[in-house]
Design a protein around this nucleic acid. Structure first.
Lengths: 252, 252
DNA sequence: CCAAAAGTGTTGAAGTTACACCCATGC
DNA sequence: GCATGGGTGTAACTTCAACACTTTTGG
């Protein structure tokens, strides 16, 4: 059971929620932030979920998503993209453990809820997920190891990843997942992780550099046991210019 | 005022609706099916809307959209694609005329409603829109002539068109807008209308034919005052095959 | 015979893929 | 000096865009 009081019917719309698939990247893997209902014994993926909450009647959907993100991570300016609405009448409460969880956090656990799903991209090292009103605990799970989630959240996750794959070929949003200063190898690895396939190193570098949206910081890695890499940062100015002109795809 | 009784609170979820942007194509233009609230004197685009309705708690979102489509057009197997959710707290009822309309069709006209928008593609000549429980009248409007709609429906329309543009480059869904038998010129024109730009005739034909998803019917147009065109039909078998393999884009 | 749309190939430019070796650092 | 990942160029191939004339029909 959660220690915070249940939100009342008056404040929250009982029929509409938002859920956020939060992606992070570190070294060689793509991660997703999951919260744990802690409502069964032992570890089970089916009790993990992506964070979300019912919406207030006074906020719009994006605002609701940002509220959830802020509550969980403390960060405000997060890259956010709507995936779409999910609304099977029995999308929640199919499993016994789902129902228990709902009873512990919702004023009307039986209500029909449709959810508007989002995905967002964050710089993992920047922040620590904190326990919140809707989760006992929260943590990063490598995306390759997830094969089940509470409610319909696995389906939402699949959909999020699909959209991210499509989007990253068209807009260089990957920078949201990397630290301010990064190497081309990191970016390369990131694209491979998201797209789920190997990309030729030389061709990748050529294409990215040709876009002219990176600034070479003329700085090098230090302390690495191999040839140190150049560090780059994302050049917003050129990116804006490019976005306005529009560019079709990276051709991957 | 509508002659059918208002649906009761019990049946319909007061907080969630679906709205459908229905596209049609004829000769040289792309059309959208609009309904008219008839709630002001004289013709005004701001009293036109795309069809939609609150959802039942027992149906999922796609079902709700199909119900609306069927009620309005009588057709069942329609191409349908979700656009996303729209949920500004004041998205409906901003304009005086919007409020009047809501009062005439909704049991709780003041309720916060988020809507899940869809677009669908239909063969225009196949059907006649009929007046329905939610519209005095319904009719086709050329898309180029629409610049305002009731509620936030103009925004929804823009979003629908944007997605259609993206999609048609990746999947040959345009066939849903054409009759069973069609000419390459019709298909060509359709692509030009959707994408809003001229496409080279020869290059277009080559690309489409290379996909190998058209069957030449070895039939010709009759009664046209110029060289008659070959008729083609869409080859579903090859299309399925192609979809599974996946193809990146048409390169337009 | 005229008007109208159908149908058809080639060429130059651009972009894409595949591929192998040397370099700078820490230990 | 060796292990590790960083960094670089070219050639063959594919794809794309641009472009103009002949054909078939109805009137």
């Amino acid at each position: 059971m959660n220690s915070e009081p249940k939100k009342t019917k008056k404040e929250l719309n009982p029929n509409v929620s938002v859920d956020c698939v939060i992606f992070g990247f570190d070294l060689n893997q793509l991660y997703v932030l999951l919260i744990d209902s802690g409502n069964t014994e032992g570890y089970q993926q089916s009790r993990m979920a992506v964070p979300g909450d019912l919406i207030f009647d006074t906020e719009n959907l994006d605002e609701a998503a940002r509220r959830v993100l802020k509550e969980l991570t403390g960060i405000e300016n997060i890259y956010l993209e709507q995936i779409g609405a999910f609304g099977d009448p029995n999308r929640i409460g199919k499993k016994e453990s789902d129902r228990k969880w709902l009873e512990s956090i919702r004023a009307q656990p039986e209500a029909r809820v449709i959810t508007v799903a989002y995905y967002s991209l964050v710089k993992m090292p920047n922040f620590n997920p904190k326990a919140s009103s809707f989760a006992k605990s929260a943590g990063w799970a490598p995306i390759t190891e997830i094969n089940d989630l509470a409610f319909d959240h696995y389906e939402i996750l699949e959909s999020a990843l699909e959209q991210l794959k499509r989007k990253i070929k068209i807009q260089p949003i990957g920078f949201n997942l990397l630290p301010e200063k990064f190497t081309l190898s990191q970016l390369h690895k990131l694209y491979e992780c998201i797209l789920g396939k190997d990309l030729d190193k030389r061709n990748f570098r050529r294409k990215i550099l040709n876009l002219d949206i990176l600034t070479n910081l003329e700085e090098k890695q230090i302390g690495v046991p191999h040839k140190p890499s150049q560090l780059f940062k994302f050049n917003e100015e050129n990116y804006e210019k490019l976005s306005l002109e529009g560019f079709d795809n990276f051709g991957f």
